[in-house]
Design a protein around this nucleic acid. Structure first.
Lengths: 342, 342
DNA sequence: CAACACTATTTAAGCGCTTCGACACTTCAA
DNA sequence: TTGAAGTGTCGAAGCGCTTAAATAGTGTTG
């Protein structure tokens, strides 16, 4: 193993000089810098992470806490995880993956041991148990999601309420008056997952403003469950011409069911999905969809943690930031004017 | 911050005694052990990770290298990542997430800095550049996937060849003679992704043994691409009654296209998918599918790394293990006897 | 030209833990 | 009764790095 001292000897300087060259925390002459850099690359030196963490009181690691649950669309989680990792690397940080099965203890362990300098929490629930732990540890934290009380933390999330409103507006603009909102399984609403509630609230408020009649139906996302839900909607409210789907698993079944009930999309029924564009493109017809910039979520969360860390290093009190990303409506082939009213 | 020394003082012993209580590496009297344990919990002590890594020359971290590419079914990657993380925790290890955009350098950095004690590589390609790096660093490594030369490494993977053979057998048993294999995009085959090639080889060999005629068609997995591919198959080989799909994105389109070409599944055409059961259940009709135990992959990879680490700690040469997990065929509603031949 | 400021480098003191060897004490066979 | 072996605890030396303080060298200024 090559150490700082080896590099120093090889370059003919003291080891602190090497350290300063590497960290840039002190002025170093051009000549010395070059000698050190040559020694570093000739010896293939990589600073020992443990020693660096111990002496520098910084691990250069952020922990990313991911949910174990699979009731959210998994590719999104992965996309966030990857964008967090890539963004963290740009700050010289690595990412530790923590699953939520340890609960608040996992977060405490990682923060208290100094394993991670900061924490990014995904899938935040209202009244999340991990938040008080992080607050009391004084760990720099960013949430992907919105808690009830974001004091002392930075947050970033999609503007789900705005996304819901966008759906309502689009269907209203097309002349639809009778809408069905097919949501996540009831478990998701039971645990007050913010994204589900906020989407629904945003949709509901705008729907009321625009004079839409609508029902919200939770749906587990399996074929059976969707068949039951959609069947009941079509039976009870045959006038329904607009469908909003938030549960990715329900999209395929919904389209099949509409077709087999004799309805053509978009002539007889309009379908708008709250899902990533990639998924929306996979169906026939391609789906009009509302989505937010997922990769940005990860990147912004990392930036927030880094800013907090930098402030704390200067002994300042970090700002609590709150960023909501604007959702985008992409009109494709699954929505059209309400023919009934023509 | 609470340190070992604080705990020692509070318990009235020396700090080495506390260390031995915690590590169990030396005999400690019942009485002392209890006093120390009480002090630990009263003070809320968590050993400093950096110091532990430095002194013990073990970071208690394994790196998991995930692909950036999205051409494999992402939920599987996530499932593996999570099972790795959970399994690692059971050994007292944490997981560092590394994306492949750093290439071999990422792996080198993490290994050479002692940030990770071991590495788990996903999405291994034939002739993978990261493998020689790991070998020369002497890092304990497990691969999820099979490289061309697994010397000095442990490997675990699904038995994709077996999975391909299982598909051929099932269709042959049902009397199908003219099969289309709808694979991944051609890029996947171009980079010699092992899983794609091995599935195809396993299928091809068994198909030949069983006297099946078949074509293999790469397919990007979008609706358009699948429509083109399937359209050509139906036009060129109208006798085709069996379909094997490996690209998850192509499943939905394939089913739609068969339906709109007037073919009923499974009466007129049998479809068998190489995909997770959860996905197979989502379609109508539910798909007969071949899949392997994904969670096991992560767990076994972790076990392999831990065994290698333990052997290396005893100054032994770790065994190279190679585990192939047997795939399982689940017959559902999308396959049936070939009616043409009746 | 002394006094000073400024720059570049070194010295040395830890960071909090693990672990080796030493030591005190007990037990037991010779 | 003594030496050997075993048991439980402690002291101290690092692990490889960062950083404050000291030092040496180099101009600048009154």
């Amino acid at each position: 193993m090559v150490t700082l001292a080896d590099v120093a000897r090889h370059a003919g300087v003291s080891s602190s000089t090497v350290s300063y060259v590497l960290s840039g925390k002190r002025a170093i002459s051009e000549e010395t810098r070059r000698r050190v850099e040559r020694a570093v690359s000739e010896l293939g030196y990589h600073p020992n992470a443990g020693a660096r963490a111990l002496a520098g009181r910084r691990s250069h690691i952020v922990a990313l806490v991911v949910p174990l649950r699979a009731d959210v669309y998994v590719p999104i989680m992965m996309e966030i995880a990857i964008s967090v990792t890539v963004a963290a690397r740009e700050h010289g940080y690595d990412v530790l993956l923590i699953t939520n099965d340890e609960g608040p203890d996992g977060v405490r362990r990682v923060a208290a041991s100094g394993l991670a300098d900061g924490v990014i929490l995904m899938d935040v629930e209202l009244g999340d148990q991990r938040i008080p732990v992080l607050r009391e540890q004084g760990t720099q934290t960013a949430l992907i999601g919105l808690p009830d009380d974001p004091g002392g933390l930075s947050c970033v999330d999609h503007d789900f309420a705005g996304a819901g409103a966008l759906c309502a507006d689009h269907l209203a603009d097309l002349g639809h008056r009778e809408i069905a909102f097919i949501g996540y399984g009831s478990g998701v609403y039971d645990r007050h997952a913010g994204y589900a509630e906020r989407t629904l609230t945003g949709f509901r408020e705008r729907a009321q403003q625009r004079g839409l009649r609508f029902v919200h139906r939770p749906c587990e996302g399996t074929y059976e469950s969707t068949a039951g839900t959609v069947g009941r909607i079509l039976a009870d409210r045959p006038e329904t011409t607009g469908f909003v789907v938030q549960n990715e698993g329900a999209i395929g079944p919904l389209l099949s069911l509409l077709r087999s009930s004799g309805r053509t999309v978009p002539e007889d029924a309009s379908v708008i999905a709250l899902c990533p564009d990639q998924l929306a493109e996979q169906y026939a017809p391609r789906l009009t969809a509302v989505t937010g910039p997922t990769k940005e979520l990860g990147r912004i969360a990392v930036d927030q943690v880094m800013r907090r860390l930098a402030a704390a290093a200067r002994d300042e009190l970090p700002d609590d930031e709150l960023v909501l990303l604007t959702p985008v409506l992409t009109v494709r082939e699954s929505t059209g004017p309400n023919q009934e009213r023509a």
